[in-house]
Design a protein around this nucleic acid. Structure first.
Lengths: 222, 222
DNA sequence: ATTTATTTTTAGATAAAACTAAAACATCGA
DNA sequence: TCGATGTTTTAGTTTTATCTAAAAATAAAT
């Protein structure tokens, strides 16, 4: 007897989950309204609904925290989103900057068996094309210790494992400079003046990365 | 500037299209209500909406006919439905009796490029797992001349190219007796008494097919 | 050709998810 | 501590897609 949620409820849950992992604190109404491109009033309405279904813990004027139940639901949606992204890139040869909107739709397809079969078809991937971990059926995922490129010091090196921003313009910029998930990156020098970083990419090519870009690249050591 | 339709509108259009190809005449409100498991009142409401968008031709109390525009939209949804069914069966190893409900959801994903890539990935299939033709991007499809097995006469033979009913129980019965799309079938004898048919399947095995089953199997000669 | 039965449409309500405007609450600075 | 400011909630609408009950139109039957 699997409980079914509406498109809206699913999108709210996902947003609440993401915002609560970004900040440690409870999520504010305004932050949600901003994220979901809607008004605080609409958010308020929906929060009452989600609280009644025990998907969130909510006290008026105090912001929300996602409940265990809510987290389970959110992680399954995220699982589907990321699996579909892998499918689109690996099987349908989409570029990694083109898959987000389509996956936003596909993530709401309800069929546990479909997800299972898709996972199998894709060879049980652990990360999506942007380097984000894919939760398993019980919501567990591997979180590697990672840091932003902008926080590394000269002579440290590691692998590019993820991006913070998944904006299309940003991703295409990465394609252009030859950076991809899995690439080896070594920090050569940090420029005091503008916060940019000089790196060695794949032991082949040196280049300068702006502060903005560097802070959106996630690196794991070895 | 592609016009977007709601889930409901798409489901109505598809139902109207299917009902108008089944009967030659215009589609009645009640038939639609029955098909969509809703009330005549709801159908009446929706018909006004679809008519205003010029997706159907509608005169009060006279039933509906689908317009050219409506047909275009319906055929694209049907295209998506059937492509996804091929994907589920060919790539995710679903059985042909399991794919309908999932494809009912997937058919509403809006992304022309996705459909194109999926079609390519599947090798431009012309028929879905039940033998139904897949319309191309402009809505054209190959319609083979076909007849129900129950209408064939002894000694005629042909290939099983489709099923009328896609009910799960029926399809699993076909699996059990070894009948599949593409199988060669020769009519040996027709039994007067109960309308059943004795056939030779794949030049290997003879068996009796009930009248009910025979009338749901579509055969094309040679 | 009327009456009866069936089908279809309208009228009025409901539920979900959004909105605007206004009221209630919280917080921070003086 | 008490306003000023900003945040959040409530109240009242709107839109979409339903529904039930009743009215209107069509079709069937005597």
């Amino acid at each position: 007897m699997k409980e079914i949620f509406t498109l809206s409820e699913e999108n709210y849950l996902k947003a609440i989950y993401h915002l609560s992992t970004e900040d440690e604190e409870s999520v504010s109404t305004n932050a949600l309204a901003e994220r979901l491109q809607t008004t605080a009033a609409s958010v308020s309405d929906m929060l009452k609904k989600l609280a009644k279904k025990e998907l969130i813990e909510y006290k008026k004027y105090q912001g929300v925290n996602i409940s265990e139940k809510g987290k389970r639901v959110a992680l399954q949606i995220i699982r589907k989103h990321r699996l579909w992204e892998v499918f689109l890139v690996e099987k349908l040869s989409f570029n990694w900057d083109e898959v987000h909107e389509i996956a936003e739709q596909l993530e709401h397809i309800h069929s546990p068996i479909l997800v299972k079969r898709l996972d199998e078809f894709l060879g049980y991937p652990k990360f999506d094309p942007h380097g984000d971990p894919i939760p398993d059926e019980s919501g567990e995922f591997q979180a590697m210790p990672q840091m932003a490129l902008s926080e590394m010091t000269p002579n440290q090196s590691g692998l590019l494992v993820g991006v913070k921003d998944t904006n299309s313009l940003f991703l295409r910029h990465l394609d252009k400079i030859g950076a991809y998930i899995g690439a080896k990156i070594k920090v050569l020098e940090k420029v005091e003046f503008d916060g940019s970083v000089e790196i060695l990419l794949e032991d082949k090519k040196t280049l300068f990365i702006s502060k903005e870009v560097a802070s959106n690249l996630l690196i794991t050591k070895r």
